[in-house]
Amino acid sequence: MRQRVSMTINGTNYEHEVEPRLLLVHYIREQAGLTGTHVGCDTSNCGACTIEMDGHSVKACTVFAVQANGSQLLTIEGLAQGTQLHPLQQAFWDEHGLQCGYCTPGMIMAARQLLARNPDPTEKEIRMGIEGNLCRCTGYHNIVKAIQAAAKVMGEGAERKAPATAPSARRD
């Protein structure tokens, strides 16, 4: 028994008939064709599939596609503006925050949510904040550095853009 779902991903509307058991991550990858969101486990431990759904960070393997009906989603493909990288993408590049790059999209999406909640995190807060995302290549050293660097750039940007207001949930 298939169900019709409709959702907006990175500003584009998608509509499909899907099986109720279809995981959102598979919908994003196979129906919407956005393969930047990866699958690294079956138990929601690795975080490679982290995306943003209605302003909240979710692991897209823990959500059924039908549960995302009517939602606004943001995936890694939606971060850059044309060829202008998001400050986190730029910082991961600058700081060598990735090696094989498989965990990277999820890691960046998790970091984005972390900085939205806590624009100026300590090292420990960063480490705790990305605890749900596993990387096997970097030892996290340069990932933490990259998030620190991005926080700095985004903080400066936010001050320039809106000095009088509190940081909003979506800061980019």
């Binding site: 956005l34 393969t35 969101t37």
Partner: peptide, 18 residues
């Protein structure tokens, strides 16, 4: 900086399943 990275940080990498 690595030339591999712009693809990978934007989700444009091509792993087997992609």
């Amino acid at each position: 900086k690595r030339r591999e990275d712009p693809q990978l940080v934007t989700g444009s990498g091509r792993f087997v399943d992609d």
